[in-house]
Amino acid sequence: MSDQPFWAQEDVPRRPLRVEGGIQIHSTRGTVARTWWSARFIAVLESLGVGGRMARGRNYARSGQIVSCEVDAGAVVALVQGTRPTPYKVRIGIPAWGKQDWARAEQALADDAWYAATLLAGGMPPEIEELFAGLGLALFPASQRDLSMDCTCPDATVPCKHLAAVFYLLAERFDADPFEVLALRGRDRETLLANLRRRRGSTAAPEPVAEETARPLGELLDGFYAAGELDLTRFAPAEPEPGALLEQVPELPIEVRRRKVRDLLRPAYEQLAE
């Protein structure tokens, strides 16, 4: 039994209870975020400078202490197993954009197919931040003021190691799917892409083309050389204008009574055409 009072014992490092089948990030060392967009998100957390809690949060994420994690419009809710029997409930809030904001954002994305193509390929074009900023919208939180964070653990410091663990898990999820970043602002992948297709006028699927059954060659030989009902006059060349051929003749460097040879020959060509 420790001689310390119970309120001081909270700071004593203890091993968290192990989780069977917990969510574990793949990064085993070094930086967690691999893409620029997940790095932008986690930079807010690391800029707070809360010391060893960040390192312990990474260890929690790497050892699979996160029981569950759900990303929805405006909020991330997770359960993180600590040293107590009951997992702690973690919530990270970020303001979701309203309908009018998303309407303007979707129209801006639809106006340039490159953005939609890049998102479909699993990437996040860096210029998308500038595009949204031009609409007065911030894709990523700029500081702690743009986030609300809460955990049911007794640690008074925010963010605690449980919050940090969820941040690192989000960073890895954002690496794999940039649409999760947009989902936090209020648009999931399916809804966003459907709205982009609608705004670009490409929601209608092409009419299916009926396949013709191939007939054996032997059945086609009798009529192979017959024209049938084919109107061959459609392929007749158009009648040229009188003197059209004359226009292709190079201009002769001589004149007859101050008239060009081509002009002298033109009436003859017109008579031949009649």
Rank of each mutant, 00 (worst) to 15 (best):
A205Y: 00
Q107W: 11
R200D: 10
E274F: 10
I23W: 05
T157Y: 03
T157H: 01
Q100R: 07
R91S: 13
A39T: 13
D146G: 04
E247K: 11
E274N: 10
R215S: 13
R185T: 13
R266T: 13
V12A: 00
R145M: 11
L120V: 11
C151D: 05
R197E: 15
S38D: 04
D263E: 12
S27D: 12
A142N: 12
P178D: 12
P237Y: 00
E207Y: 02
E10R: 07
L147F: 03
D177T: 07
R40K: 08
I92M: 04
L120W: 07
I23P: 03
M54D: 07
G228L: 06
V19L: 11
L272V: 01
S148N: 05
P141D: 07
Q4M: 14
R104M: 15
G201E: 10
V166D: 00
G51Y: 05
A205K: 03
K260F: 10
L139R: 01
Y88T: 02
T86H: 02
R197F: 15
I92A: 05
R234L: 08
D112R: 04
G136L: 12
H162S: 05
M1A: 14
G223P: 00
E270D: 13
A171N: 05
G64R: 01
D263H: 04
L184N: 02
E172A: 13
L230E: 05
A156V: 03
E255W: 09
A105L: 14
P5T: 06
V50S: 01
S47F: 09
S202W: 07
A39S: 10
I23L: 13
E20H: 05
G51F: 09
T152V: 15
A8I: 06
V67Q: 00
Q248L: 15
L245W: 02
E251M: 10
Y269G: 01
P159R: 07
F6W: 09
R84S: 12
A244W: 00
Y225F: 14
A75K: 06
R145C: 03
E211Y: 07
Y88P: 01
N59L: 15
C153I: 12
E127M: 11
N195V: 11
W97P: 01
A108M: 13
H26A: 15
P267E: 08
I128F: 09
R262T: 14
A39G: 05
L109M: 11
T86P: 01
D222R: 08
V80P: 01
T118D: 13
L48A: 05
M1H: 08
C151A: 08
T152F: 06
E20I: 15
R173N: 10
L48G: 02
K99T: 15
I23K: 03
L184Y: 06
T86D: 06
G134N: 06
E239D: 03
V80A: 04
A96M: 06
R104T: 12
T86R: 04
T203P: 01
W7N: 04
H162N: 09
L137T: 05
A121L: 11
R91M: 14
I92E: 00
E229V: 07
A75G: 04
R199N: 10
A33R: 00
